[in-house]
Design a protein around this nucleic acid. Structure first.
Lengths: 190, 190, 190, 190
DNA sequence: AGATAAACGAGACGGTACGTCACGTCTTAGG
DNA sequence: CCTAAGACGTGACGTACCGTCTCGTTTATCT
């Protein structure tokens, strides 16, 4: 019953989507380093100002695009044991490896722009982190995690390895790696 | 018997040092995002061409500057137990936290420029990694690492957490954290 | 018998006046070069479309504003001699010197936009010119103008000097100048 | 000898000429209103920055171009009588009528930009004015100008008519007009 | 009274050009 | 041959306005 419309022409949903799609396309085709607001606008058939009106930087466009398509892709597994849950989470996450260029670009931007870094952390990274934190909490309830173990450090181990391999690309990020890491984390927790 | 002097004016060591120093100064004062070849040259009282003649990109300048001052700072501890060695290594490493802006900048560049990424890995990251690998090898000899554990994954856990916290700055990177991580890694290894 | 009222909401006279006033205000405060349709609309509390609905360009708004307030300010002096009439006309005209920024702006626009130039000539310049032509015609009847003198050239001399000084601002445009010019024109006519 | 070369790469004369030529070409082809720095740069095969490095505005480029080709085109006639000299000067000046678009554009810019107005006056307009002033001074020596006549007003009459017709384009600016105006000015002077 | 219709404010839209910044290359003179 | 200086072509930045296009709302006339 709201009907609280602001005056003036409403934002064009079609344009919004065209911009997000163009951003992803440009990024995967030419890489984050070559990504430009001008390029996105041109490919989307939009004016530059339309982008600047709604997003503070090109990285925010990309982040929005990611979140738009990956919405609620974060499953919280619950299979009864930490080992199974961890392996499930990691295998599931590693499966999305195709997004590497996007993720690497976003991280690069976050490293260069502190303002964007906050967005990146809060809207993207912490979402996944919260999911895994739930898994750990359940494991703790089942007594699978020793009292003297800080769950946050366990989270950092999981995501640390994940991002380290993602960024450096020096070692595989596949199912085998997921199972290996899960085993080690379970042992470390006790 | 003088040796292989090439003809023409020799490279100026003073200028080389001035450029490296200017790069570090600019970076710490204004941040990596604001770093420019032009700025480095101006501050060093050098010509831009002089920089381009010797380094392919500004990131290489910064990397050289890092390596120049951090030369052989990587100690390989050997105190008789994995726990002690790991804790020593981590505490030692975490102590250099003041270099965060530099490290973050280099990583950002590596993410954006694949050519530089190779330099960064080979000349910087893998140096530390080799040091720690030695530590792990010794621990394996002492039977502190189970046979089914891939030491490379242990390395990734250590450096993963390290870089993850360094890049995200969401949790401390202090002695306490070092000891905590060391404990968990030891447990994971067996 | 009211007449041909079209259906729909009638044009708002209040808005019309607000726009004209805003245009003059903006112009005198910030100069013609800084004048923008957006600025006029904002100051008038009007929508841009309302301006574009009624005027083809911002210059037309300014011209309308000028004509609105200067309506029938053109007196046709008739004092019995060309010298007196001319001096009267010039002194009278020069007295409006405060409008210099407006006039200069309109001329600039006319030079850049041929469509507006026609409006400017027909609705503004030629009005004054007709007034002076009447004066000259009377003088011719009195025999004050030689047969071989083209009155149009005399008009161009008067308005030429007027606009030249107005545009260049290199010499005064005061009563003294008005009398001087009148004297010379009388002599030139015979 | 001097040899006072500044260090660094010297300004490119070829580029300078290409820019001036491109400016004139763009102007005559598309008109002053459509003239853009970007267009000039593109046509000249130059970077925008190169234009901004040497000229404060596009109008200054055009002014330079004008002066470059019209250098010392201002002849000072000396035929023994004011009538002959004036007619000569005017006919000569009117002959360059092809430059109308350029002159009109420069004047428009001068009206909009006070900084450029100074350049325009001092470097262009006052050159012609000085030439004619010399002619009048000689006429005064010969007694052709009454003592009570201000020569500056005579100058304004000549240039006023010239520019008035040039800008408004409502009456011819040909030889016949030149002779007519000359006759009137001679009579006005006495 | 209700329907119709134009004008209005607001403001989003696709564009064009602005003037600036830094890039990496080049062209000088001089050590 | 190296260096400092600095001009060059290039390309992207973020901004300002342009003139057009929806919106919901207001204000009149015409059933």
């Amino acid at each position: 019953m709201t009907g609280d419309r602001r005056p003036g022409r409403p934002r064009s949903e079609a344009t919004r989507r065209a911009i997000l799609a163009a951003a992803i396309d440009e990024l995967t085709e030419r890489g984050y380093a070559q990504l430009s607001v001008e390029g996105i606008a041109a490919r989307a058939g939009a004016g530059k100002q339309t982008i600047y009106r709604w997003w503070p930087s090109k990285a925010d466009v990309v982040l929005d695009a990611m979140l738009d398509e990956a919405a609620s892709l974060i499953a919280v597994p619950d299979e009864g044991s930490l080992a199974a849950d961890l392996a499930g989470f990691l295998v599931d996450t590693f499966r999305q490896r195709g997004q590497r260029p996007v993720l690497v670009g976003l991280m690069a931007e976050a490293l260069l722009d502190p303002v964007f870094a906050v967005q990146f952390r809060d809207r993207f990274l912490f979402g996944r982190r919260d999911a895994l934190r739930t898994v750990l909490a359940r494991a703790a309830d089942r007594g699978e995690i020793a009292a003297d173990v800080d769950p946050e450090m366990l989270l950092d181990i999981v995501f640390g390895v994940l991002w380290y391999r993602l960024l450096l690309d020096h070692a595989p990020l596949d199912e085998e790696a997921g199972r290996q890491l899960a085993t080690l984390v379970v042992r470390a927790a006790r």
